[in-house]
Write a protein that binds this DNA or RNA. Structure first.
Lengths: 345, 345
DNA sequence: CACGAATCTGGGAGCGTTCACAACAGCCTC
DNA sequence: GAGGCTGTTGTGAACGCTCCCAGATTCGTG
């Protein structure tokens, strides 16, 4: 007891705004005004109402409010990725956590929707149409994802994480500057006097994959090195793909002395491969990853990588979504990546 | 276009139940009956209403419904653990995913609440009181967690994952039989003719930690081996703690030939330690973990472990919660663990 | 053929808010 | 001292649904 605060239990019924009004000696309208920011309310009335709220233990009934405002005050976090990705890639968890936190600052709950099958997509779309949520935060790296189109055509305020390819105009989004980040990584390796710098790319049908490759080329050029197709291997952001790509690279280019890997997870795989091949990191081969996911700092040796400012990304996503809910037009935010030098390069 | 289905856009307004009724030539009441299971509705009316729903593109307004039923149809997934745990331990993600899926089967959305600070707890409690949700799924291994008490005293239908120590009566919960699982693991090692079987425990202030240690002792006894305090080291479920504990064990007992580790994550750490000490797994030292988390099958060599039936756990949690919402009393479900033999033992 | 039971339907009441509007007080200005 | 502001308050009307009750219809049975 007592944990509940002072609760006047008048008949077991949850107190309504009317009860508060009666207790404060004012009208419903005044209480409502206090609840919604307290504009045009006299100090006397304000104090009385606040006291009455405490006394009665009143909590606003969100359903009644939503019914009239046509707003739920909640947003969906839609994860539209194959299940395995979700488990393997810590970035998703960082995003989930970050968005939950950023929304909590605005007292908005987050509804989690996972849509990794065709049928799930339908369920999620139906759910969204039912008025449960005001907007959506969409996480999907998968380019041809139908969810983008559905959300756009339904007119649901949506903020994507990463470029929503084909819907850059309709949907707001937050992305990091992949080209710039990859360029940073590559020039860093060059400055370390490495001359045979290879790269493991992400999937090239994804904007991130393409852009990071582009940044790698720019970085080479800037450093006076020439691009060599032999020094490029492709992965799919999984750890094992990084390992396999690295093995291919080593076989084709026994002389390589550095590698830029387009994700930390793949970088971990690449390190496995280097380890097995008996190449010391960074002694024989310097290595830079991308993402700065939790595992980057935990790895031994700790991974030098390009940091994606996750916290900032989440905050910007939420900010853009609130702006959208406020009636503003979809905007895009491109954030800079930042090189984090640790032990591998 | 077209993607929306056949939408009769009569004045941009979202169609109401009244519009459907008009289109079907019946009354509001009949439409409502169809929407809620269709009892006491003639086949003719049912068909007409369903057709009208399709035609108008009607979707029920959940807020209006919730206002009268006083039910939101949503549940919260409360993760009350330090942030690091959430990131490091894949079990949480498996739970989150599983519960989302199990709830989706019942068309119930999941609201994610993370409460890892005192202040967060207050926010979550306030949120829950506001009527946003009907019940809660609570994940916390932390014994003295105040959230248990708050939820119990607020009378929120709650299902915990694992024993809610001190609130076993008030709260429903789903747990696996830790004693049995640990016993299974230990007797398996003994059957492999191992005679110096050590253990790395979890934190002993947690029921899981205590129970798994108990199961280990029972397993030894059953196999005719004597318990030796020297063969016990304590960890805290983190990978690094597993590594450190294993190092201690090896130092104190150079002759040990097997180890039961109370979590897969710690088992991974223990394997690191064995690796560094030059002990082959399972050649020199056989190893059994606990959890069957995704990393267990991914590890090299693949981890022999005690499987927690995650999918089943989630399903049971949701089932218990629905029962609670249905007015039934809190119940407990204890699920058996199952030995999964892979490469390490 | 009438009558009661069983089945089905329609519509009023109410859920707890917000919002627009009218009313009113107090004050300043001419 | 009348007129017009400005600031504050109360009230009625939604919002879109479910629930309940009364009435209508259908059907079977004596």
């Amino acid at each position: 007891m007592g944990e509940r605060g002072v609760v006047v239990d008048n008949g077991r019924r949850r107190p309504t705004i009317e009860d508060v009004a009666a207790a404060a000696g004012v009208s419903r309208g005044t209480v409502s005004r206090v609840l919604n920011g307290g504009v045009n309310v006299s100090p006397t009335a304000l104090a009385a109402v606040n006291k009455a709220i405490k006394q009665t233990g009143y909590v606003v009934n969100t359903h009644a409010r939503s019914l009239v405002t046509q707003r739920s005050g909640s947003v969906a976090f839609i994860l539209s990725e194959p299940q395995e990705k979700f488990f393997e890639d810590p970035n998703f968890q960082v995003l989930l956590r970050g968005c939950t936190q950023a929304l909590a600052e605005h007292d908005m709950p987050l509804l989690l929707s996972i849509a990794d099958s065709e049928q799930d997509v339908e369920r999620v779309v139906r759910f969204i149409s039912s008025g449960h949520i005001d907007g959506a935060l969409l996480v999907s790296t998968h380019a041809g994802n139908p969810v983008f189109g559905r959300l756009a055509s339904l007119g649901i305020p949506t903020v994507a994480c990463g470029l929503p390819i084909g819907y850059e105009r309709e949907l707001a989004y937050v992305a990091v500057n992949d080209v710039e980040g990859a360029r940073l990584a590559t020039t860093h390796l060059a400055r370390l006097a490495r001359r045979r710098i290879a790269t493991v790319t992400g999937p090239l049908d994804l904007s991130g994959g393409r852009e990071r490759l582009k940044g790698y080329r720019e970085g080479l050029e800037e450093s006076g090195l020439t691009f060599d197709q032999n020094l490029v291997a492709h992965g799919d952001y999984t750890r094992i793909s990084g390992q396999l790509a690295m093995e291919r690279l080593l076989k084709q280019n026994p002389d390589l002395d550095a590698v830029f890997v387009a994700s930390d997870l793949m970088a971990l795989g690449a390190m496995d491969a280097l380890d097995r091949a008996g190449r010391a990191v960074p002694g024989d081969v310097a290595l830079v990853g991308f993402d700065d996911s939790p595992s980057a700092s935990a790895a031994r040796p700790a991974l030098t990588t390009v940091r994606q400012p996750w916290k900032r990304i989440c905050e910007e996503m939420v900010r853009l979504l609130l702006a959208l809910l406020d009636g503003q037009d979809p905007a895009a935010v491109i954030l800079p990546g930042q090189l984090v030098v640790r032990e591998t390069a």
